[in-house]
Simulated scan of single mutants.
Amino acid sequence: MDFKIRAAEKEDCKDISRMIMELAVYEKMSEQVKISHEELERDGFSQNPFFECLVAEVTDEHKSKEGFKVVGYALYFYTYSTWKGRTVYLEDLYVMPEFRGNGIGKGLLSKVAEVGKKKQCVRLQLSVLNWNTPTQDFYAAKGAQDLTASEGWHFIRFDGQNLDNLANEAPKS
């Protein structure tokens, strides 16, 4: 199957938003999606974007049943390790179910790695739900290490009222 991977453009945000919801449904967390395509446009395509994104696009003759040409995406951003240095964090990697098994996911993952290497990142990090063994196996086959198993790291999150409470406790200067 012919496809190309390219940097996402502002016009792709509706497709990305659609696929974010598809991914959330797959992950059994659709009720947690609150972001709109307008917010994606603002946050990814402003003067100082919070994220970067690649999309996988198929040719006209391979469009989805619904007529979509953008059939996958990889959304990522940069972080920093005080131990290792520059890091690229892969927030989402998604390929529409009817296009899986054609190398699109591998292509997106490899392209994010290439982009990270060009920016002198020394590692690529991501997280996977504990029940999602097909995805864990996909990453493991590419050489990823499960830090939960090997090092015992846990991802911690503050959000909602807990984030507000924490921010309100900041020293006033």
Score class of each variant (00 low, 15 high):
residue 47 Q to K: 14
residue 141 A to Q: 12
residue 10 K to L: 08
residue 172 K to E: 15
residue 107 G to H: 04
residue 28 K to S: 07
residue 91 E to T: 01
residue 30 S to W: 06
residue 96 M to P: 00
residue 103 G to F: 06
residue 173 S to P: 14
residue 68 F to V: 05
residue 53 C to A: 15
residue 15 D to R: 04
residue 87 T to Q: 14
residue 116 G to K: 01
residue 110 S to Q: 09
residue 42 R to G: 04
residue 127 S to Q: 11
residue 19 M to L: 07
residue 14 K to P: 03
residue 5 I to K: 08
residue 53 C to M: 02
residue 82 T to V: 12
residue 2 D to G: 05
residue 36 S to E: 12
residue 66 E to Y: 03
residue 48 N to K: 12
residue 137 D to H: 00
residue 71 V to A: 09
residue 133 T to K: 13
residue 145 Q to W: 03
residue 163 L to T: 05
residue 72 G to A: 08
residue 63 K to E: 15
residue 115 V to P: 04
residue 150 S to P: 01
residue 51 F to D: 07
residue 139 Y to K: 08
residue 113 A to T: 06
residue 36 S to Q: 02
residue 172 K to M: 08
residue 44 G to D: 00
residue 116 G to V: 01
residue 76 Y to C: 03
residue 161 Q to T: 11
residue 141 A to H: 14
residue 167 A to C: 10
residue 45 F to L: 06
residue 78 Y to D: 09
residue 28 K to R: 15
residue 133 T to C: 02
residue 136 Q to T: 02
residue 120 Q to M: 05
residue 150 S to I: 10
residue 152 G to A: 07
residue 35 I to F: 10
residue 6 R to E: 14
residue 90 L to S: 05
residue 30 S to K: 06
residue 151 E to F: 11
residue 99 F to E: 01
residue 99 F to I: 02
residue 142 K to P: 00
residue 33 V to I: 14
residue 173 S to W: 11
residue 5 I to V: 11
residue 74 A to P: 07
residue 138 F to N: 01
residue 82 T to L: 13
residue 129 L to A: 09
residue 66 E to C: 00
residue 146 D to W: 11
residue 118 K to Y: 03
residue 45 F to A: 08
residue 89 Y to F: 14
residue 158 F to T: 00
residue 86 R to N: 12
residue 78 Y to V: 09
residue 90 L to N: 04
residue 56 A to S: 11
residue 78 Y to K: 07
residue 68 F to T: 08
residue 131 W to H: 03
